[in-house]
Nucleic acid binder design. Structure first.
Length: 479
RNA sequence: UCCUCAGUAGCUCAGUUGGUUAGAGCAUCUGACUGUUAAUCAGAGGGUCUCCCGUUCAAGUCGGGACUGAGGAGCCA
């Protein structure tokens, strides 16, 4: 019976009027004891339900409060008033769930801050801003699968629990069933993980890449899209302890192929959201304009959100080498005026201020930087012939920073083992990985894209906690 | 983890040099009105000034500490 209702998005787009409809949703506002703005999350727009005076008794009227859930039946008619094309002339209004206005934290007329709503993450979905964000997020996620599926990639589920501790991608969350009060110890006093559930030390994954490479060297092209965990004590607008990462891995790809794919991929999913979430993006664009009114003119975005996205979809990314990036920085007015806090020279890891300068001041568009010094990059990246650099690539996005990190992988067993030895990575625990190089090794490449950072970029939001449903950050694991 | 800033009504904020009973808008409640668009109008209620310790005749206000949050940095996606 409940599935006979029509979603509000469909009703608002309806060409037909005069038809009988059933609609269900939550009250956004109730004006003049007659006009109910009803929302069901299918769109940011509400449908106006008109309950003519006399239709409902006093007791029912008092229960139509913001947040209450209703089942309404009536006729979809052309609205006689301005403000909406169609409305529902109700013949019955049934209250499915009451909402006590004294306790309900969301009130349309209030302007709760994003910080306040973070503490009400279970209710913030009902606000216009978060409704728009999460519909856009959904579209981006769907577009990820569509993009790779259309290209013949295989969606590989890499493990959440791993025993590998050689990935070097930050602090890990330990997974254990050992008791804290009487931890089994070995004779030397260290914890005896042989007693643990898996018989060894295990952690939540920080990357599916190494397992992804096993898939790519059999299926040719794979991608992963799953939760990823980092136990870093990072308190920033762009880090989460639990986030979603997309990691494609492709056999018979070199670094150029890798860049081409990453760029095509990013432009594709943005385009998909623009084609399918126009209203939500326009709402978010307007929100950004309002928010930036409080900022001094020189701190505001040069382009509106929609214009920024169109620009990225229609223009290629800038591609430079690390060495070129260093040269640009050394030649920059900012460097000459000593505006950088950190020194610039070949060999340094680019700091946030350097990346920002390149992306936001110099190129004013996404930039792909390749050919980093091998000393500052991971062991699995392919060594270039110059002996100094590796075939790494980072994609830097305006306002976000690093959105993609990737590389061509070192497929030559000897070079890989040599590098692992130099970086003190125990090869004996990595035989399963090295086997890909022992048995029919191939040139291959891949990258990781932080999904929430992508959502930040597309929605114009500035804090990563506002684009994930239930944010996990240091000292915060509610809901 | 480091630096800076903040915490006052349900929400957003003001609160002077330390000084009597702590202020506004919105929300809520009561009433009026009824084709409204964040409806409007009138009235009412609503406070452990985050917590602890200290200075002082006197602390929302000054000092120390804790907790929480925000922004920036590092780590990174």
């Amino acid at each position: 019976m409940f599935n006979k209702r029509t979603k509000i998005k469909a009703l608002l787009a309806s060409e037909q009027t005069g038809i009988d409809v059933t609609v269900m949703g939550w009250v956004r506002s109730f004006r003049n004891s007659q006009f109910i703005a009803l929302n069901d999350g299918s769109t940011n727009n509400n449908i106006q339900v008109v309950a003519e005076l006399g239709l409902l008794d006093e007791a029912t009227l008092k229960r139509i409060n913001p947040g209450a859930s209703l089942k309404v039946t009536g006729q979809l008619i052309e609205s006689p008033a301005k403000g909406q094309k169609v409305e529902i002339k109700a013949t019955s209004v049934e209250i499915l769930g009451d909402c006590d206005p004294e306790k309900y934290p969301l009130q349309l007329k209030n302007r709760p801050t994003l910080e306040f709503l973070r503490e009400k993450a279970h209710l913030r979905f009902r606000t216009s801003t978060f409704g728009a964000i999460f519909r856009v997020r959904h579209s981006l996620a769907f577009a990820v699968h569509k993009f790779f599926n259309d290209k013949g990639f295989l969606y590989l589920h890499t493990p959440i629990i791993t025993s590998s501790d050689a990935e070097g991608a930050g602090e890990m969350f330990r997974v254990t069933t050992l008791p804290f009060d009487k931890t089994p110890r070995k004779e030397d006093g260290t914890v005896d993980f042989a007693e643990d559930f898996f018989g060894k030390s295990t952690n939540l994954t920080v990357s599916g890449q190494l397992e992804g490479e096993l898939g790519a060297t059999a299926f040719s092209d794979i991608y992963t899209f799953g939760p990823t965990f980092r136990a870093e004590n990072s308190n920033t607008t762009r880090h989460l302890a639990e986030f979603w990462m997309i990691e494609p891995e492709m056999a018979f790809y070199d670094i150029q192929d890798n860049m081409d794919l990453a760029e095509e991929f990013i432009r594709y999913i943005i385009k998909y959201a623009m084609d399918n979430n126009r209203e939500d993006l326009e709402f978010l664009a307007q929100r950004l304009v309002e928010e930036e009114k409080a900022l001094p003119a020189d701190k505001r975005s040069e382009l509106g959100l929609i214009e920024k996205l169109e620009f990225v979809v229609n223009n290629g990314f800038e591609r430079i080498t690390y060495t070129e990036a260093i040269d640009i920085l050394l030649q920059s007015p900012a460097y000459k005026k000593k505006k950088f806090q950190y020194p610039v020279s070949w060999g340094i890891d680019l700091q946030s201020e350097h990346e920002r300068y390149l992306v936001e001041k110099h190129f004013k568009k996404p930039v792909i930087v390749t050919g980093y010094p091998k000393a500052i990059k991971a062991f699995y990246m392919r060594q270039n012939d110059d002996g100094k650099t590796v075939a790494a690539m980072d994609i830097l996005a305006p306002g976000i920073g690093e959105i993609v990190g990737g590389s061509q992988r070192e497929e030559r067993l000897e070079k890989l083992e040599q590098r692992m030895a130099e970086m003190n990575i125990p090869t004996h625990e990595m035989d399963w990985y090295l086997d890909t190089r022992r048995f029919g090794t191939v040139p291959h490449a891949g990258f990781g894209l932080g999904f929430e950072r992508m959502v930040l970029f597309v929605t114009g939001m500035t804090n990563i906690r506002d684009v994930i449903a239930f944010a996990r950050t240091p000292k915060n694991c509610e809901f």
